[in-house]
Design a protein around this nucleic acid. Structure first.
Length: 774
DNA sequence: TGTGAGGCCGTGGGT
DNA sequence: CGGCCTCACA
């Protein structure tokens, strides 16, 4: 039990507690993952069979990290733990027992895009206006209902919901929900919410099944419990009903996902459901300086809806929180980038020590530009994940359709891809025939000659034969997942089509598909994924629930400043943290306040942002900001007033001083105007940096070539007339380079550019290239 | 079938 | 403004 050493008393209590309900309230930076890991190890050491322990997380990443850490402590036994995300664990259970609800074990999983696409079809088919019945809105309402365990039948009969829908001017919602649920069922598909909803239904209607799992899982643990929704909570509650060995870990102060259905009441009211519950509070913060911890406390203290706790630290006092005022969003970018540059110089830090956190993704642009100008490498977390990319979804749709021909969304994606001349009209005809004959569309396609003759029937037969041949390949089990997948990628024509596309986008699409195939190879070769049979079906099952990109940078250079939304930063920590855009209506977000009237969740979000910082916290705001083309005046965020001013100071280390004191929030001091001296470079302590400021000539606004890519203020299709061999250029993604060769080929004009660094040579079609001539 | 002009919309995000 | 989508037109 040597791992108990180095744990503080509450941490030890939590690790040693093994029977009965337990709630661990873990403040930011209090070592909650450690406690969870050791508690698991402790249970196993006391003789609990790893097969009887269920450990639930929210993200694949968290699950992966947890598994690694548990493995380190207890070794091979960790493989036998049931550990994973809510969705993956219950998808597994539904593959075993979904037959009780009418699903086969190879049901498809619809991701958000599939769901919205299905909703769009339904709205159109019913002749409704998709400007009113926006797929996004409809999806969120259906999702909200499922998360509260309201099925379609209850939804249509509940007068309160009906009234609410009428008030929202969406009277047809109930009908859409009903059809949506039916279509998913007919497609043998579940959306993300169904994985939880159906598990609840399964446990409710089939007591024998519930009993089986209640006996199996003697110990249930939930990480990030503050983010569970009602549906998830009811599952864990049912599972631990007999054993009562439910252990949840969370921090109500970091509950920031109410907008997508998480219920903070789950953690606030847990004691009502479990009167015998032990509550342990982890209040010592090991991450941040005193100033940061106390400033964070002073913010969260304003919230009424919370559990009482006092987070403290024994770390050094640290420096004050710096406040940067900028005159515009562009200047904010420059000031922050300069601050990073100078901190790097003065403190000898690496790029990875810094993070810029913002409220909305749209704010990243000015920081990108200013960091690039200082030659500081950055990476942006967020945006489209790997598995959401078109080309990846296309290939996965082929896999899905090969395995499940009822998968309507997969069918829609691939029927005319690559182009076969099967358009909307043909699909409509097929659908009508299928409805008339009361058979699935696949039956019509597979036997098309019985129903239809003519030119198109040959094409359709060709498609059907293609799928049939894939199916035979999968069913024969002679080839592994990688061989089948490469075969499908090739014979479907997808790979060929991408290979012929020589634009930058085309190249990267081709590379992405190759990367997907590589990951399938890895899946096949990896001996310990815990998957028994490595076929296409099992790969698809794992991959359907993998949605985050988490890929390292392709060029292997991982020393980068991290930029992301505050939501994305939960669970991470950085030496220096910049919380930018501290303006009223932006943070706290105006929409959040209008639609949810929930200032407290915004405040918790601010708490999360502050507590990411280990040593230094800098906040900035701009007095004006470009928004949708207009320059908008901004007020400093009310959150700045809420921090005790004794923790704040104006930034000293930035070269451009702030002058105006007029609109300073109360209690702020005016900062001095002194110019920061640049360090003396070239001494032994301070070697000349290679990446010092780049002087850039003024460039005339580039000519617009077509509107495929509209020009932004700085990057645009280059002036194809003026670009010449030998020119120095800057590319939005690849950075700086030199034009080696220019080819004109019909209307296409291509430039081969040698880029600096490890990027190498790229040939770009100039009408798509995001280039600037230097 | 592909292109380009014009319209619309704009929060947060894992599964 | 910028990204995405649609629709008209070649």
């Amino acid at each position: 039990m040597n791992y108990l050493e180095g744990l503080n008393q509450p941490q030890q209590d939590a690790v040693k507690h093994s029977n009965g309900p337990l709630m661990i309230i873990a403040g930011a930076g209090s070592g909650k993952t450690r406690v969870l890991t050791y508690r698991t190890a402790h249970l196993i050491e006391k003789g609990v069979d790893p097969f009887q322990i269920l450990l639930l997380t929210f993200t694949n990443k968290a699950a992966g990290e947890m598994r690694q850490r548990v493995e380190k402590v207890i070794g091979n036994d960790a493989k036998n733990l049931w550990m994973g995300t809510f969705h993956s664990v219950f998808a597994k259970i539904l593959r075993f027992d979904g037959k009780h609800l009418g699903y086969t074990s190879d049901f498809s999983i619809y991701d958000t895009d599939d769901s919205k696409s299905l909703i769009r079809s339904i709205v159109k088919e019913r002749g409704l206006d998709d400007k009113i019945y926006k797929p996004n809105v409809v999806y969120n309402r259906i999702s909200g209902a499922k998360n509260r365990l309201i099925g379609p039948d209850e939804y249509v009969t509940n007068p309160i919901i009906a009234a609410d829908d009428v008030a929202a001017k969406l009277p047809e919602m109930g009908k859409i929900y009903k059809i949506y649920a039916l279509r998913c069922f007919q497609a043998n598909a579940m959306d993300f919410d169904d994985l939880l909803y159906n598990t609840n239904i399964l446990f409710r209607d089939h007591p024998a099944v519930l009993d089986k799992y209640q006996r199996k899982f003697k110990y249930v643990m939930v990480d990030e419990f503050q983010d569970t929704n009602v549906s998830q909570y009811l599952i864990v509650k049912k599972l631990s009903d007999i054993s009562q060995n439910l252990c949840v870990v969370g921090d109500d102060a970091q509950s920031i996902y109410a907008f997508r259905g998480a219920s903070i009441d789950n953690i606030l009211n847990l004691e009502k459901d479990y009167p015998n519950m032990t509550t342990i509070k982890l209040e010592q913060n090991y991450r941040s300086t005193q100033n940061i911890v106390e400033a964070a406390n002073s913010i969260i203290a304003k919230n009424k809806n919370q559990l009482k706790k006092t987070v403290f630290t024994e770390n050094e006092e640290g420096s004050l929180i710096e406040l940067v005022k900028a005159s515009s969003d562009n200047e904010e970018g420059r000031l922050i980038s300069t601050h990073i540059f100078e901190s790097k110089m003065n403190l000898g830090l690496r790029n990875t020590d810094f993070a810029i956190l913002y409220r909305t993704n749209a704010q990243s642009r000015t920081f990108e530009e200013s960091l690039r100008k200082l030659n500081i490498k950055y990476r942006i977390i967020g945006g489209l994940s790997f598995y959401q990319r078109r080309e990846i979804k296309d290939l996965l749709a082929y896999f899905r359709y090969t395995i499940n021909q009822n998968d309507e969304e997969a069918f829609k994606r691939i029927i005319n891809l690559p182009k076969r001349g099967i358009g909307d009209t043909t699909i409509a005809k097929l659908t009508i025939t299928a409805a008339e004959q009361q058979i699935p569309i696949w039956e019509v396609i597979a036997n098309i000659k019985q129903y239809q003759t003519g030119r198109l029937s040959d094409t359709i037969e060709g498609f059907a034969d293609l799928i049939k041949s894939f199916k035979i390949m999968v069913d024969s089990k002679k080839k592994d997942a990688y061989e089948v997948a490469s075969h499908i990628a090739k014979s479907s024509g997808l790979l060929k089509e991408l290979h012929e596309d020589k634009t930058v986008e085309g190249l990267s699409r081709y590379e992405n598909v190759q990367e997907l195939l590589n990951s399938i190879k890895q899946f096949v070769d990896d001996p310990d994924t815990g998957v028994e049979e490595k076929n296409l079906n099992t790969f698809l099952q794992t991959v359907s629930l993998m949605t985050t990109a988490d890929q390292d940078d392709p060029d292997g250079d991982n020393d980068r400043v991290t930029m992301m939304t505050i939501h994305g930063a939960k669970g991470l920590e950085f030496n220096h943290v910049y919380v930018v855009g501290m303006e009223e209506d932006l943070f706290p977000s105006q929409m959040m306040l209008q639609s949810r009237q929930d200032l407290e969740e915004e405040r918790r979000l601010f708490y999360v942002a502050i507590t990411r910082a280990e040593k230094k916290l800098v906040m900035s705001y701009a007095e004006t900001r470009y928004q949708w083309g207009r320059l908008k005046p901004c007020e400093p965020s009310r959150f700045l007033d809420e921090i005790d001013p004794k923790y704040l100071q104006f930034a000293k280390n930035i070269r451009k001083a702030v002058e105006d004191t007029q609109r300073l929030p109360q209690g702020f001091v005016k900062m001095s105007n002194r110019e920061q001296k640049m360090p003396d470079f070239g001494t032994s302590n301070n070697p000349t940096p290679t990446n010092i400021l780049i002087q850039r000539p003024n460039v005339a606004r580039p000519q617009v070539v077509g509107n495929t890519y509209k020009p932004s203020s700085d990057f645009a299709p280059s002036d194809t007339k003026n670009l010449a061999e030998g020119d120095r250029v800057e590319h939005l993604k690849f950075g700086f380079g030199k034009v080696k060769k220019i080819d004109t080929n019909g209307t296409d004009r291509k430039a081969t550019i040698q880029f600096e660094g490890s990027i190498g040579e790229k040939t770009l079609l100039l009408s798509f290239a995001k280039l600037r001539i230097l």
